[in-house]
Amino acid sequence: MTLTGTGLGPTTRVLFGTTPATFTVVSDTHVVAEAPPGAVGPVDVTVVTPGGTSAPAGYTRVGPPAV
Rank of each mutant, 00 (worst) to 15 (best):
L3W: 13
L3Y: 09
T4Q: 15
G5A: 07
T6E: 14
T6V: 15
G7M: 04
G7H: 02
L8P: 15
L8K: 10
L8I: 11
P10M: 02
P10Q: 10
P10R: 06
P10D: 15
P10A: 04
T11N: 08
T11Y: 12
T11M: 08
T12F: 01
T12P: 04
R13E: 14
V14K: 10
L15Y: 10
L15V: 01
L15P: 01
F16P: 02
F16V: 00
F16N: 02
G17E: 05
T19S: 04
T22E: 13
T22P: 01
F23R: 09
F23T: 10
F23Y: 09
V26F: 09
S27N: 09
S27T: 13
D28W: 04
D28V: 03
D28Y: 07
T29H: 11
T29A: 11
T29D: 11
H30I: 04
H30M: 11
H30D: 14
H30Y: 15
V31Q: 08
V31W: 12
V32F: 01
V32Y: 01
E34Y: 03
A35D: 03
P36Q: 03
P36T: 06
P36K: 08
G38N: 05
G38H: 04
G38Y: 00
G38S: 02
A39R: 13
A39N: 08
A39H: 09
V40S: 08
P42A: 13
P42R: 09
V43T: 12
V43L: 07
V43P: 06
D44L: 01
D44P: 14
D44H: 07
D44I: 03
V45C: 01
V45T: 07
V48A: 07
V48M: 05
V48S: 04
T49Q: 03
T49I: 03
T49E: 01
P50Q: 09
P50E: 08
G51I: 05
G51S: 15
G52D: 14
G52R: 14
T53L: 00
T53D: 10
T53I: 03
S54F: 00
A55Y: 14
A55V: 13
A55P: 15
A55Q: 12
A57V: 12
G58F: 07
